[in-house]
Nucleic acid binder design. Structure first.
Lengths: 237, 237
DNA sequence: ACAAAAGTGTTGGACTTACACCCATGC
DNA sequence: GCATGGGTGTAAGTCCAACACTTTTGT
C-alpha cells in the first residue's frame, strides 16, 4: 500500500466557558499572543497531547483557565473544515463548559490575558473572534439554552450553594424572558433531586431571606422546564 | 517508553447507521478484512482525507455504504482514548445516521461485506464489535431514542412516503413500548409540519387504506412526544 | 409599619390518556 | 356482511400559567 504524504494533522480542544455575571451571559476569552489572528480574542484551547484523550485535554485546559476542577464539561462538536486554520490542518473538538460566577475573574496559570466578555458582544460583527470561534460560541450558547429545558444544567452556573432566585436568574438570562418567581420555585422544588436544601438561609439585605440549596443528584428533568411563549398554534379545528 | 516527538495522528469517521426492519432496530456492520480485529464485525468508517471535513468524510462513507444520498447524519461524539486503536493514535468522530428500510440490503461499492444486524445482538457480550464500536453503537441508540421525543427524527427511518402506522412502528420499535394508534395519529397530525399528506393512499391488503404522507418542514416537536411510563433503563446489560 | 422578597392557594386552560365509536376496504 | 385496520369524539386526570394572597425579614 503506497502512502502518499499526509499533511500533518493536529488536534485541539477549544472551550466555550460560559457563566452568568450580573444578569449577563458571558464567555471566557483569551487574547491571542501569536499569529495568526494576533491580538484578537479567541476561545481558550490548546493542542491535545499524545498521551491524553481529547476529553482529558479539555478538562486540563478548563482547570488551567478557571482554576476550578469538576466544572460541567461536555463535547459540543467537531470543526474540521480543511481551511479553518491558516497554519495547516487543525481539527478542533469544541467543548461547552459551565462556570459559576467566579470570585476572581481570571485566575489560573497562563490565563493572564483571559477575560470574561458578554456573549452578545462577542457575537456581533465587529468582535472578530479568531478562527471559527464565533461559530463554536453560537453552537455552545444554543446547546446551553436548550439543555436548560430538560436537564439540571442551570445549577452548574451557580456556586456551591445558591437560592432559587439565583437559579431562576440563570434561566431568565439565558432565555431572555422573565419567569414567574412563584411558579418557578414550586416547579423546581417539586422536581425531585434538582436541588436539596442546606438548612442555611441567606439575607439579601432586604426582604425575606431565601433558603440556600445545593445541587441535587438528578441530571434530567421530568417533565422539562418549558420555555414559555412559543407562538405555535397547533390547534386548527 | 520512548516515543517519537509526535506520534502520527489519524482521524476516522465511524458511522452507526440505524434502520428499522420488520419491527427490529438494526445497524449496518461490515466484517473486517484486515488486522486488527480481523473477521470481526465493525461499524463502517474510514480515514478522513486531507481535503475534506470530517462531516464530508462521514457523508461520503454513508453514501458508499447505503447507496443513498441525503440521509439523516449527525455528529455523535469523539472517541479519542490514546489506546483505543492498537495501530497507533487514531481518533474517531462517531456519527449517527438514519436509513429507511432499504429495498436492497447491502448495495454500494465496497460494501460487499456489509450486513444489517439487530442492535440487540451486536450489543450482547459475544458479538465482539471491533475497537470501541459497541460503545459508539450504545451512544447512537441512546441518541436516536431520545431524539424521537423532541424532533421529527422518526420520519428519517421511513421512506419517501409512509403511513402514520409506519411512523408509529418506528417509535414502538425504538422505545420498545406499544403506543395507542388513535392518540398517536391525532398527535402527529396536529403537530404542524411533522408530516404532510401526499394525497395518495395505500392498501395494506386488508382494512381501510391509510393515507400516505411525506416528511414535513418541522424538525422539532412542540410539545414533544412523551414516552409513556418510565420504568428506567431497558438495558440489555 | 412599611417595603421587598419568598413562598402558598387556586382557577382556567392545554395536553394526555383511555376507550367508545365510526369509516373504508377486501373478501 | 364481517373482519380488519384507519380515524374521530369525548370525558377524566395531570400539568402549567396567571395571579391574588400570605409569610418573613431589614429598616
Amino acid at each position: 500500500m503506497n502512502r502518499r504524504p499526509h499533511a500533518q494533522l493536529r488536534l485541539t480542544a477549544d472551550l466555550a466557558i460560559l457563566t452568568v455575571r450580573q444578569g449577563r451571559l458571558e464567555v471566557l476569552t483569551v487574547r491571542r499572543g501569536n499569529k495568526p489572528f494576533l491580538g484578537q480574542p479567541a476561545l481558550p484551547g490548546g493542542f491535545v497531547r499524545d498521551d491524553e484523550s481529547v476529553d482529558d485535554a479539555a478538562a486540563r485546559e478548563l482547570e488551567e483557565e478557571t482554576g476550578l476542577k469538576g466544572l460541567h464539561l461536555e463535547q459540543l462538536a467537531v470543526f474540521s473544515e480543511p481551511d479553518r486554520d491558516p497554519r495547516g490542518r487543525v481539527v478542533t473538538v469544541a467543548y461547552l463548559a459551565i462556570a459559576p460566577d467566579l470570585p476572581t475573574p481570571q485566575p489560573g496559570s497562563d490565563a493572564a490575558a483571559a477575560s470574561w466578555e458578554p456573549v452578545d458582544r462577542m457575537l456581533t460583527p465587529g468582535a472578530d473572534l479568531a478562527f471559527d470561534h464565533a461559530r463554536i460560541l453560537t453552537t455552545a450558547v444554543e446547546r446551553a439554552r436548550s439543555k436548560l429545558e430538560y436537564t439540571t444544567l442551570a445549577a452548574a452556573f451557580c456556586g456551591e450553594t445558591f437560592t432559587v432566585a439565583d437559579l431562576r436568574s440563570v434561566y431568565e438570562t439565558l432565555w431572555g424572558t422573565p419567569i414567574d418567581q412563584r411558579n418557578f420555585s414550586r416547579k423546581v422544588l417539586n422536581t425531585e433531586g434538582f436541588i436539596t436544601p442546606t438548612g442555611q438561609r441567606i439575607s439579601s439585605g432586604v426582604g425575606r431571606p431565601a433558603i440556600l440549596y445545593r445541587r441535587g443528584p438528578a441530571t434530567t428533568l421530568h417533565p422539562p422546564m418549558l420555555r414559555q411563549s412559543m407562538p405555535t398554534s397547533p390547534d386548527a379545528d
